[in-house]
Simulated scan of single mutants.
Amino acid sequence: MALTRRTLVAAGLAAPALIGLGRAAQAATTLKISHQFPGGTIDEGDFRDRMCRKFAAAVKERSKGAIEVQVYPGSSLMKTNAQFSAMRKGALDMSLYPLPYAGGEVPETNIGLMPALVTSYPQAMAWKSAPVGRKLTEILLAKNIVLVSWVWQAGGVASRERPLVRPEDAKGLKVRGGSREMDLMMKAAGAATLSLPSNESYAAMQTGACDAVITSSTSLISFRLEELSKSLTSGRGRSYWFMLEPIMMSKTVFDALPKDQQELIMAVGAELESFGQEGAQADDTRVEQIFGKAGAKVETLDEATLGKWRDIARDSAWKDYAAKSSSCAEMLKLAEAVA
């Protein structure tokens, strides 16, 4: 085709638009969010996976495609225990992660599963705006982690044989507690303990390496522990096992984003907290139905039994945690102040 003045002018007018389009494409950001739980869809499956997918969809829509979040369930992107350290280094963008799994690197995070410290959802959800929540946020920021969305879950006990309800039931059992502090309480009650992520619980129970698994109601369901259990101690109503399992983000990655995208991520995270809490509480009821249907005996804790566990926890786990550092002692004091 012959080049005329008209075609050259047209090409010149089109060039800025094409350059602008290329810049827009380059400006698009892809974030990867990893978690250890079974994958599903935005409408079906483990609520924690669904929460991540809802987060991804909302961020993409409201950023008009400028941010895309890819969800990697089942530790398919990265092994469970490596995720926190990877976020700190900027090697992983985001994770929905059980906070006390980070206790080996940041001891203060073990407050996120301190036995019998948090015993109800209203108490748990009050942390975010309380001094304990502000201090925890500051500690994580100093370790290069941004806390994006707060999620608390109650937990229960799945037992292969005899129930684990009262402290005296623990003697002689091999128990997975979920945190160092939970293990300390169980040891003080006479149990042996083993440390492993919840996604390895089924294999541990199946082989007999573990007699009882304490984990969130959702994990009890998602990891199909009713197939191996004759007893369930439900966390519905009250529990000595409440875990903070938030969506977190690498501060290195967060800081590299424009301010409007940072604000969008934090806004979506906050808005999804109600979905997370509703999902956790719904599973506290559903786990009883699933285990009961499978033939397991279902029991709950009364206030007197919870008080016995609290007494043991205070003399073992709480005492040990507070002795770690002045920072841990302050965290515990602030947490106790949340009624």
Results as ranks from 00 to 15, higher is better:
251 K>G: 06
264 L>D: 10
224 R>N: 06
288 E>R: 10
309 W>G: 07
216 S>I: 02
240 Y>H: 13
214 I>F: 08
256 A>L: 07
311 D>V: 09
247 I>N: 02
296 A>S: 14
200 E>C: 12
295 G>M: 07
220 L>P: 00
202 Y>Q: 05
280 A>V: 01
262 Q>R: 14
287 V>M: 05
288 E>I: 05
244 L>A: 09
293 K>D: 13
240 Y>V: 09
238 R>M: 15
259 K>C: 10
286 R>M: 12
217 S>A: 14
256 A>S: 14
277 Q>C: 10
241 W>R: 05
264 L>N: 12
208 G>C: 12
215 T>P: 01
307 G>T: 15
280 A>H: 02
247 I>L: 15
294 A>H: 01
220 L>W: 02
199 N>T: 06
313 A>S: 09
285 T>M: 13
265 I>P: 06
252 T>G: 11
252 T>E: 10
213 V>D: 00
303 E>T: 15
207 T>D: 12
231 S>Y: 08
296 A>T: 01
229 S>Q: 00
283 D>I: 00
297 K>G: 07
300 T>V: 15
217 S>F: 04
246 P>Y: 02
237 G>W: 03
287 V>W: 00
247 I>C: 04
229 S>N: 01
231 S>D: 07
250 S>M: 06
292 G>Y: 09
232 L>I: 00
214 I>K: 02
227 E>G: 05
246 P>H: 06
314 R>E: 13
286 R>D: 10
294 A>I: 00
240 Y>F: 13
214 I>H: 06
204 A>Y: 11
293 K>M: 11
215 T>V: 14
296 A>V: 04
241 W>H: 13
278 E>T: 11
288 E>A: 02
216 S>R: 02
232 L>F: 00
301 L>F: 11
309 W>M: 14
265 I>T: 11
312 I>A: 03
279 G>N: 04
300 T>D: 11
218 T>C: 04
308 K>A: 14
225 L>C: 03
295 G>C: 08
281 Q>M: 15
248 M>H: 05
